[in-house]
Design a protein around this nucleic acid. Structure first.
Lengths: 214, 214
DNA sequence: TAGCTTCTCCTAACACGATTAGGAATCGTC
DNA sequence: GACGATTCCTAATCGTGTTAGGAGAAGCTA
């Protein structure tokens, strides 16, 4: 009955196979599509049969749930890492934030669908899995506040703007750059609307830090 | 072997049950969600068993396909009807177009998902069903051209902007107005970026034609 | 009217999903 | 060395979309 009966290395091993399963699930999702993921295939990739997965996850949705959390944690990590690199100048910062999320979202369809599109019928992330997503959004609030953007409506508009570009990039030109090209313009448009100070010095400063040849 | 063996009233009756099936499908989709639609339930609503639907549709996807076409045709019709009401002044016209599509999309989740979100695994609309959507987009091009917006990138930006607002309205505040409130601002922001002439007369002209109390 | 074809519906059945029940092997711990 | 938990298995259930094959009605042709 006691939960602590398992030794620590047992727990570690258990966690290991859990990760193996998740990793297999990601592979399947990327290959066949997020919604086409089947327990049989995931199980096969880790050398199991489908029912055995239930020793590690309560249900298929629980797997999606864990993937959801992983995806947002992944972005949270990336954001944290690159946080020091965010330019100080407001407009450059906005561009940076927009590009960061855009690139991340556009790099992996399955991940993007899981994070931002309700692709899976009936699936709603649990509160726990939602936590990283909330933290990311909180961090964005802080970032934007540093620029002077604190109004909720302004933030919503920024989010919708970038999100719209991502969705349309995936929907209408997957793998291309048709909507990516619009990001800088979109951000400037937004910055103008918010009367952010213009950086008159030059248009090619640190904003081009980790954006290659677009 | 000849297809014309059926009389015209037979064809009419056949078309009738086809519509009945589609109408039942919409009802199920609206009630249980688009993806949760099952052939058994649709069939039950029209007094049939699931396999009998195959006399009228090749597959479940064919039903989705017909629904997709209906949805876009519906919007096309609405757009055509209200076309005469589109204000002449550029900014008012943009607001009008944005609101028109926003309201339509926000009125019906299942319809919106089918039209604009890839919710159904493996489902891709056929070329035929896509036609109304293409016509709608063409009509938008014409409309925008009348305002002086002809650059493809500009159009893409407008579409992404409005689409982003709709998606976020559904995702984060379904039934609310949190993102709806942003539309006018978003459109103005866009119009400013395109250097559209400002309507200095007053801010409450015909743009409020069929928008009630928002 | 008889015979035929065609159309539309049916019941059975299949394949393949997720999931549950129940058992065998493994492996620490007493 | 026996116990108990853990982790895997096979077998079976249930709900999907879909196919096979047949029954009955209704039209057209003689």
């Amino acid at each position: 009955m006691l939960g602590e009966a398992t030794t620590s290395w047992q727990a570690k091993r258990r966690e290991g196979t859990r990760q193996e399963i998740l990793s297999a699930a990601w592979a399947v999702a990327r290959q066949h599509g997020l919604a086409a993921l089947t327990l049989r295939e995931v199980a096969a990739r880790v050398g199991m049969r489908a029912p055995s997965l239930y020793s590690h996850f309560d249900s298929k949705h629980a797997i999606y749930d864990a993937m959801f959390e992983q995806a947002w944690s992944e972005y949270e990590e990336l954001a944290r890492e690159s946080d020091a690199t965010v330019p100080a100048e407001p407009r450059a910062a906005l561009r940076y934030l927009a590009w960061r999320f855009f690139d991340f979202s556009v790099a992996d369809l399955a991940r993007h669908q899981l994070m931002n599109v309700r692709t899976i019928p009936d699936f709603t992330p649990s509160a726990g899995s939602y936590a990283p997503a909330v933290r990311v959004l909180d961090a964005l609030h802080v970032r934007l506040a540093a620029i002077g953007i604190t109004d909720g409506a302004d933030i919503d508009l920024f989010v919708a703007l970038v999100g719209g570009l991502i969705d349309h990039q995936w929907a209408n030109d997957p793998g291309g750059t048709r909507w990516a090209r619009l990001i800088d313009r979109a951000v400037d448009m937004y910055a103008d609307a918010l009367h952010l100070p213009r950086s008159d010095i030059s248009s090619s400063d640190e904003s081009a830090t980790d954006q290659e040849e677009r």
